[in-house]
Design a protein around this nucleic acid. Structure first.
Lengths: 203, 203
DNA sequence: ACGACTCTACTACAGCCGTAGTGCCACAGA
DNA sequence: TCTGTGGCACTACGGCTGTAGTAGAGTCGT
């Protein structure tokens, strides 16, 4: 309740508010003044912390990467040594959470991804964060016997990201698939990629 | 040529310019005045044709649906009676074109999809257009022997849309996959969905 | 030929946006 | 205690945005 938030927590508050605004009002709704108001801080606070608009976007993106890294933390994700089922479960769970509990964060990410198309500074941060996740997936499919890890990792990312986008902003907004549906679909994709030899093993 | 464009062609010119602006400058770059300038029309033209911002967005969305409908026209897409290979080829080609020749249109679609999250009027138009495509896919996978056509159609849309987003605005911006890579990935997904019985048939 | 109607060009205005300048306060080091 | 240093609150301003009013030109039916 201290109206006074200091240091890092103040920065995080502003960044989180920016992410919420991105999700709720889009790129046009993110302004210095709107963040001040949304965060309950006096006018000028945001403008002071992030002097330019680009600085504000970078702040939000850094915070987004932090929070998603926590969600996808290594200890949450199975290592390359794990079985297929564990990988499927972990990925499906993370995806399902992004559609429900973390919906706002997911939306904000797409807003920033589109903006990064036009802002090289953002794109750099974005690619760095994405590469970490992609490399993890590449190692995973390699361990599973993929014959073309890079392409398979792309395929996997595309399916996961596309499912999230379709359910959050696309033609499937109404009904979010259940965790089981995500799991089954993901399993099918992996079966197709890895060949039918391990297709229906369950366990 | 005539600096004077009349009637429907004028409307289309304004809508197309709006789509280009969405792709190149994003939601914040789409303004009545920017469209005037981009289209080479006198100031006030866009403001007059689409009095409010929502009207301008609806105009752009209608035009987008028209142009995409032409790309995905029935005679371009194989009917339910076609073989698996024809379906894969047609979908892969349309997707690959969206990444190369129609990249701007694809980007504009994602901008509008995100905006539709917050504008019920846009969402209605959007869902109607999406439903037509989805229904076609549902019929297709049904004809192929899918055991769960709705979920498989969603899976297919997710993969296609996710691939496009990842390559146009995501972590794979740099290298667009070749037409063959799209085809192979799509084939793998279908194999997984439909079971391995028709997996590697070729021809 | 003429009047009604539509489309176009131009202008006005209130509000909001990004950015930057300035003085103030709290706290750390000497 | 004095002083400097960094963050904070507040204010200013030029520019752009969405929206709307109005008058004139062009078009069509009769």
């Amino acid at each position: 309740m201290s109206a006074r938030t200091t240091g890092a927590s103040r920065t995080d508050l502003i960044a989180d508010t920016a992410l919420v605004l991105l999700a709720e009002r889009g790129m046009r709704g993110l302004t210095h003044r709107a963040v001040d108001e949304g965060a309950g801080l006096p006018q000028g606070s945001t403008s002071n912390l992030a002097r330019t608009r680009l600085a504000l976007l970078e702040l939000a993106l850094r915070r987004l990467a932090d929070r998603e890294a926590r969600v996808l933390a290594p200890h949450e994700m199975p290592g390359p040594a794990s079985g297929l089922d564990q990988v499927v479960d972990a990925l499906a769970l993370a995806t399902h959470r992004a559609l429900t509990h973390n919906r706002a964060l997911t939306l904000a990410r797409y807003e920033l991804a589109l903006e990064a198309t036009r802002r090289p500074e953002l794109r750099r941060h974005f690619d760095a964060a994405g590469a970490r996740f992609r490399d993890r997936l590449t190692a995973l499919v390699t361990a599973m016997g993929s014959t073309d890890p890079d392409r398979h990792a792309l395929s996997l990312v595309a399916w996961l990201d596309g499912l999230m986008f379709s359910c959050v902003a696309g033609s499937f907004t109404a009904d979010v698939p259940s965790l089981d549906e995500v799991r089954i679909g993901l399993r099918e994709l992996l079966d197709g990629m890895l060949g039918s030899r391990r297709a229906t093993r369950n366990g």
